[in-house]
Nucleic acid binder design. Structure first.
Lengths: 177, 177
DNA sequence: GTCTATACGAAGATAGAC
DNA sequence: GTCTATCTTCGTATAGAC
């Protein structure tokens, strides 16, 4: 159900995702939703953000040993698949929450921060200077999130792949320097 | 009123911005809104996107002669001011529409595309190779949009400035190459 | 042309039958 | 514990008095 919430929120945004629809979407009755999620919609949104964030963090620690380029490739491949499989309906639920909501913005903010910090670690392990790693990590997180929206909006993998190509260049240069 | 719509949509998203609130926000009665915007909320959203897009395009053509770095600086300065002045409530309405809505996604998609094309022109005038200019333009548009969300989310100009610093490096390198 | 009052549906949430 | 029926509030949109 949390996964369903993440999917719907990513695709249509928080405001456009009603608890009713979500219940129908996941096959659960409306009442049960409030039994399992007494906090209502806010709790559901929060758990969806946490769930996605956890998955991203797993991906980061799984590929982190192989360096920042491997992380980037894993992200891009993942998003490419998601976007195409959903016919360009999917998007990042964390970004959606961060853009829309103000109540549950805390967890979204924390998620971005965690992703950034994990990326900084990866970059520093590859010898990138601390200050540079900090800046580069924000570029990577920010531009991938932005690129997902661009690609979804253009209904084409091209923007995302363009961003990936440029990021690869920057990462290679930063690691070498 | 269109400006107010853009502001509210940027801050709270499309779904969370009701026509009622917007009328109150701009001081207009609810009925008048439907007199001037017979298309209702959809028309309002669409015009807000068009209005913002026009402003961005103006900024692009005004600073474009001075090169991509000047464009970047203008954007960052603009967003910095907006974010701080709004106590990190502001965000890009076009991104909000592109993330949330499906009906009015067309104009948002067109806006991104136009910004990209204008940036490609600027880059090519500075001698950047066509293919590279295309990719780099997507990186710039995507990462600035992403960076605005990151900075808003972190309630700090830092992510945006980090992205700007990295972009400056990439642009300088691309122009030189 | 401007605005108030209202229609109608859908939202979040809950009470209470099973 | 599960689910249906319902309460209240707020959404978009409009009708019709000025």
């Amino acid at each position: 159900m949390v996964a369903g919430a993440a999917e719907l929120i990513g695709a249509r945004g928080v405001g456009a995702t009603s608890v009713r629809e979500l219940a129908k979407f996941t096959g659960a009755p409306l009442g049960s939703t409030y039994h399992y999620f007494p906090g209502g919609k806010d709790q559901l949104v929060e758990e969806a953000v946490g769930w996605v964030s956890g998955r991203i963090e797993k991906l980061l620690s799984r590929t982190g040993d192989q360096g920042a380029l491997a992380v980037l490739d894993a992200f891009i491949a993942n998003w490419r698949e998601f976007l195409i499989a959903s016919d360009y309906q999917a998007s990042c639920p964390v970004l959606a929450v961060a853009t829309e909501d103000t109540v549950t913005a805390g967890p979204a903010s924390a998620a971005f921060s965690r992703w950034h910090d994990l990326l900084v670690e990866v970059l520093r392990r590859e010898g990138v200077a601390p200050k540079r790693a900090d800046r580069l990590a924000w570029l990577i997180v920010g531009s991938i999130e932005g690129a997902v929206v661009m690609s979804r909006s253009q209904r084409s993998p091209e923007p995302m792949e363009a961003v990936a190509a440029e990021l690869r260049g920057v990462i290679r240069e930063a690691v070498k320097a």
